[in-house]
Simulated assay, not measured.
Amino acid sequence: MKRHLSIIKIGGNVIENKVDLSKFLQSFSELEGPKILVHGGGKLATQLGKKLGIESKLIGGRRITDEKSLELITMVYGGLVNKNIVAELQSLDCNSIGLSGADGDTIQAHKRPVKEIDYGFAGDVDGVSADMITKLLEAGLTPVFCAMTHDGNGQLLNTNADTIASELAIGMSQNYETTLYYCFEKKGVLRDVNDNESVVKQIDSASYQELLAQKVIADGMLPKMENCFHALRQDVHQVRIGDTSMLDPKSTLFTTLTL
């Protein structure tokens, strides 16, 4: 029987709030069994970019990553955010190691082809080195991945953090029973976006189509849900969406997705 592995992606609004981040990291450190943390840092990158005179270009919520933007996110994602998270986890007796996809050749990707939009140095994931990551987990380390990958030819690439979390869960499912957590500021998928208690607790493939038709799931939640069902179709055991409280074993107010 495979061991259980938790893969948690933390959203930018939580990263930006020091109190919320500390609360989350406390809960994360207490989560039993092997685990992996994935983070971005887009809002902080935008803020620092303004100070440095580097304009952030976004289309449909996706960052256009030119050379200067790539340098910026490397500093913010791989440096500022990643190392501060690792340092705080160490203070909570959670022995962590900060990584990008280039470290240990853990996540391989290719530069996104230019179609209608040129996203610059944006990466789409090709594969995950499950055996390398398993070695880290078996050594008692908790990997903390920033939202960066590489192409194997010396080029770093900016990669969507939701996608990295999904692909890690898929890749690691060959060695573990994986549960993927998307942790953000809402308590889950909401029937009413103005009511944070209106959580849809269970969603399967059939009810997902109903929620789409009812426009309950729309806009920014759509790509997140596509990542969720993509992961489930590739042998990920379960996906959960909610705020930081869903890491508490006693919590019941979050959304669980299954096929």
Rank of each mutant, 00 (worst) to 15 (best):
K50S: 10
I8C: 03
L52P: 08
T142H: 03
L89R: 05
F229A: 05
L259Y: 07
D93N: 10
L222F: 11
S69M: 14
K201Y: 11
G127H: 03
K50Y: 07
G41E: 01
G140P: 08
Y77V: 08
K250L: 14
G188T: 01
P223F: 06
Q90D: 10
L247T: 07
G42F: 06
N194E: 13
K57W: 00
D243H: 10
G152Q: 12
F254Q: 09
C146W: 09
V239S: 11
F24Q: 02
D192E: 15
Q155K: 14
G78W: 14
A213N: 15
F121P: 06
V14R: 03
F145N: 05
Q155C: 11
E32H: 12
D118G: 05
L136I: 08
K215D: 15
D204V: 08
L257G: 02
G123F: 02
V144S: 02
E116D: 14
H110R: 12
V14Y: 04
Y77H: 13
L44I: 15
N17V: 01
S173A: 09
C94R: 05
D219E: 14
L253R: 14
E30P: 07
G33H: 05
E226Q: 14
E177Q: 09
I73F: 07
H110T: 12
V128A: 09
G41C: 01
S205D: 04
V14F: 04
G154R: 06
T46V: 12
V239I: 13
Q202I: 10
Q90N: 14
A147K: 04
T142Y: 04
G242I: 11
F184P: 04
F229D: 04
N153D: 09
I97F: 03
N153M: 10
I7M: 00
K68D: 11
S166K: 14
A87I: 10
K201G: 04
R62F: 03
G104L: 10
G242T: 10
L222D: 13
V128E: 05
E138D: 15
K201L: 11
T178K: 10
C228I: 10
G98W: 00
T142F: 03
S6L: 00
K201S: 14
K2A: 08
P34S: 09
L253P: 09
G127M: 03
G61W: 02
V86A: 14
V125Y: 00
F229H: 02
T255Q: 06
P143Y: 05
M221V: 13
V125S: 00
S29D: 12
I133D: 09
G60K: 00
L25D: 10
L21A: 03
V125T: 00
K201M: 10
L5A: 07
A139I: 10
S198D: 08
V193Q: 15
V144I: 06
D235T: 06
D93I: 06
E210A: 11
V236K: 01
L137I: 13
Q174E: 15
L70D: 07
Q174N: 11
G11T: 06
A147P: 01
P143D: 07
Y181P: 03
K68L: 15
Q155G: 08
L70M: 07
P249I: 09
